[in-house]
Nucleic acid binder design. Structure first.
Lengths: 183, 183
DNA sequence: TGAGATCAGTCAACAAGGCTGACATAAATT
DNA sequence: AATTTATGTCAGCCTTGTTGACTGATCTCA
């Protein structure tokens, strides 16, 4: 194994090519090779980013879908099912399966809406908050370390690029959602 | 629907909070709210990033797993099954199912290794290359536009942060893999 | 040369988490 | 009173991951 990959030096991580010269594109616009690198970087980074929580969740018989629900319920306690559907963009059947499990395991509580009694307001129980803290601690460690090591300039570049990657029609809405805290 | 999200102004995307003051962390290290924002940004951006190709693939009866295989075969023509397993980190049964379909559809060709006849060297057929071009064009458009709009400074910050997010044990190896082109 | 390791492929069974379609109920709205 | 909305649920399907067991061909090494 590792056939292709063995001989890489483990220390001093090789810097990726810098924008300018590297891939020939005359101006500031990224060349083909640069784009491929960015795309692959996204793939590998995202894989490791989701890897830590996945491992914890697997031990509990839960999956990434549960993590997403727990994250957004923690973030906006009392969020309705429809609100969560909007954010996650899955079908209600899909979400419902996840919520049912979370409620059965005592991680999430569903209360009848006070203004509109058809709605259900979702909350984490203490056990749910504990799980959330465990999962987010892992991701905050990883992301926090990356941002710190890369520095504040890089951090703002990272944010700018990711923001621009969001569908332009929903960008403002999504960024606004992200910007507001728990609310 | 969109209950929570409606009233966001669509124009002039709201800037996320800036590192310094915003979340109280005394020094340059990111605060809790900043980290949550970065994590959510990653989630939303990655979702849209994978959305374009997913839509095309769905029309062909293929999925994201096929995309990954096609991408890395295109990138390293002649790669062996073991090499691909190493990169994708899935089981050979899982990969084999995907490869079998790709070969059956005439998108991938598997040739007996010349040096080691146990190995199989994988190549895209012309149809495979065409699909690859279609898929990567979508992603290159999105990522290219994002990098261009965010500028070269942001681009390098984006790369730095993502690089730091990769597991430190495999970072050098992975970055080296990314850095080399098709080779 | 012969034993054992390695590369690839396969079968079977299972689980997570997407999806569609059809329906039911309670509550709100018109 | 009729209709719409919010939620929940049943049933069935698909993709893509998993484990475990086993085969055949080929390479390597003692």
């Amino acid at each position: 194994m590792l056939a292709v990959l063995i001989e890489a030096e483990r220390m001093n991580a090789p810097k990726l090519q810098t924008p300018a010269q590297a891939t020939g594109s005359d101006e500031g616009s990224p060349g083909e090779a640069e784009l491929r690198q960015a795309i692959e970087l996204l793939f590998f980074a995202y894989r490791d980013f989701t890897g830590d929580p996945d491992a914890v969740l697997a031990g509990r018989g839960l999956g990434r879908a549960h993590h997403r629900a727990v994250h957004f319920i923690n973030r906006s306690p009392g969020i309705t099912v429809a609100g969560l559907l909007d954010i996650l963009r899955v079908t209600k059947q899909s979400l419902n399966r996840v919520l049912r499990q979370l409620i059965a395991e005592g991680l999430v509580e569903s209360r009848e809406g006070k203004i509109d009694r058809r709605q259900r307001n979702l909350f984490l129980t203490e056990a749910g908050r504990e799980l959330e803290r465990e999962l987010s601690a892992l991701q905050r460690d990883r992301v926090g370390r990356a941002l710190r090591d890369a520095g504040p300039e890089a951090t703002s570049g990272f944010r700018d690029v990711l923001s621009q990657m969001i569908d332009s029609e929903s960008r403002a809405t999504v960024l606004d959602l992200i910007k507001r805290g728990a609310a």
